[in-house]
Structure formats: structure tokens, C-alpha cells
Design a binder for these strands. Sequence first.
DNA 1: TAGGGTTAGACAACTTGGTTGACTACTTTG
DNA 2: CAAAGTAGTCAACCAAGTTGTCTAACCCTA
Lengths: 149, 149
Amino acid sequence: MEPVPMLLAMTYRAMGDQFHDRLAQIGLEPLRPAHGYVFRFLKARRATTVDIGQHLGVTKQAAAKIVNELDEWGYVIREPHPTDKRAQYVTLTTKGRDYLKFADNLWSDLESEMAEAIGPDSLATIKTGLTAYLQHVHGDDQPGLRPVW
Amino acid sequence: MEPVPMLLAMTYRAMGDQFHDRLAQIGLEPLRPAHGYVFRFLKARRATTVDIGQHLGVTKQAAAKIVNELDEWGYVIREPHPTDKRAQYVTLTTKGRDYLKFADNLWSDLESEMAEAIGPDSLATIKTGLTAYLQHVHGDDQPGLRPVW
DNA sequence: TAGGGTTAGACAACTTGGTTGACTACTTTG
DNA sequence: CAAAGTAGTCAACCAAGTTGTCTAACCCTA
């Protein structure tokens, strides 16, 4: 059998392919993966462009480009930082939150289909196993979902 | 708990980070991910540049660049195709096979450490579960490990 | 078996998503 | 209060991909 890392990659790729197929079918504006990672990051915390760059693992200039796009397209807005006059908080608009919610539903559908295919017990074991591993690696401050290049 | 696809991505990313850290420590020439995918593809089958492009999901021109690099660096050679005078088979050299073997050992180490962290039974269930899902999705012709970006 | 459509690979021009570097305005620290 | 550090922007560059074009070889069919 294939080693675990390959199985993880193959499975994620298989689910990701279906995810994008369905997004395309629905006709929802197809954002690039980086945008999704930003949405997910902003959902949890307030963040500046620099924070976003750090999370994505790119320079602040690259992050700024992405934030500019998302702003132009209406998915995020920039708000003045309450205490630091240099900085701006980037936050999701309603449109941004809606897109994220829609994507989450799609992922959730795929998870359900996996449960049907391999059985809910199997799925549950996988989830707790992976979660335990992440706990083992990162301890108590999980970095969250970062790009898998 | 996070949905499965995110768990898959986070776990793969966590393992990948460790993989690259260790590669760098050893001081082995750091190839890019695409090269790894090519090695793994060539291990199983004889392939032309076009085949490689298809597998990676890029144009044949992009694939040709990668193959050129790998050739210059001594990881692959091009051999005349036995029946088609236009085409060339790309095959791994000893250096290429050695690199792949080394990488496989590293991945295997990471799998062992996962087994320690979450228990071998848990790991086994994960592997059979993911394998079953891939069987469910792709049926009998598995596309193998393709890039996840 | 000739001829038309297709395919492998090479070459060139261009696009894109990132990089490094420099600068201003503001903040933090000694 | 001065010096060092940081958020964000502008500009130049780079790398990895793209499209488009071409030649030589292949393959089908009438």
C-alpha cells in the first residue's frame, strides 16, 4: 500500500478536483486557492496584510496584491486599525462570508459522500487520528490551514 | 472538528514541512516538488515528455523545461523511442533512482513517527480508509500521485 | 500508396504570481 | 527623545507557466 503522505495527498487532490468541478458547475466566480486560504484565515481572526502574508508564506507585497483583488471584487474591506495608524485590518464582507459558507457546504457534502463510501466509523477514526497527529506536531497552537503548494 | 479535507491538507502540509526540513538538513540538493512528482511517475512507467505533462497537468512545453533541468542535473536521460522516431522515452538514471529511494525512506520515517504518535491501529485504519475512498472515486485505474497545488 | 489530419518535440513571445529593494509614515524601545 | 523596527506602497525584476508556430514523423482511409 502507498505510504500515508501519498494517500493524504491523493485523497486531498481527489476531493479538491470534485470541489472545483462543482464550483465551476454552479458558475460561482472561480477564485484561486490563495483566496480561499485568506477567507478561512480571516474567518477566525482579525488580520492585517502582513499577517496574511505570514500565514500564506509569501511576502507582504504578494499578500497586498491578493488583498487588493479581494477588495476590488468586494470580498473584503480594509478598516483603520484602532491603535496603529500605519496598519489596516482586513475583514470579510457579507459577500466574502457567503462565499466561504458556500464552499464549506461543498466540502461538507464531499465529506458526507466519503462517509457513505467507506462507512461513518472509518471516517470518524480518520478524523480523530489526523487531529491527534496535528496535536502531536503543533501542540496547542495550531497554525490552521495553510497552502499546500 | 475540522472537516476531513482540511484535516488531510493540514496533515499533509505538516508532514511535508518536516520532509523538507530534513532534506535541507541532510544537504541533499533541494529539487522542487514538481521534480518529485516526475520521479514518482517515472518509477512506475516509461513515459515521454508529453505523458509527463499530462500527469502534472501542465503543457508539454512546461514539462519539457522540467525534463531539461532533470537531464542537465543528471537525474534522467532521454532514450530514443523504439517505434516512434519523433518521440523519446524519459527514464531515471541511477542518481535519480537513488534520490527517490532516499525521499521514500524519509517519508517512511515520517509514517513511523505518526504510528508512534497515534498508535499503529489508528494508522492502519486511516490507510485502509483512504485507500478505499480512492478506489471508490477512481475505480481500477488510479491516476497515482499528482501535484496538489 | 498517396494524401490529409494528428502528434512529439523545439523555439519564441508573452503573462502571471511571485520576488527583492527602496522609501514614507508611524510605532516601540532603550 | 533618539534610534531601531514595522505597515504599507511603488517599482523593477524573475521564474514558471502560458499561447502560438513550426518541422518531422505517424496513422488512417479512400
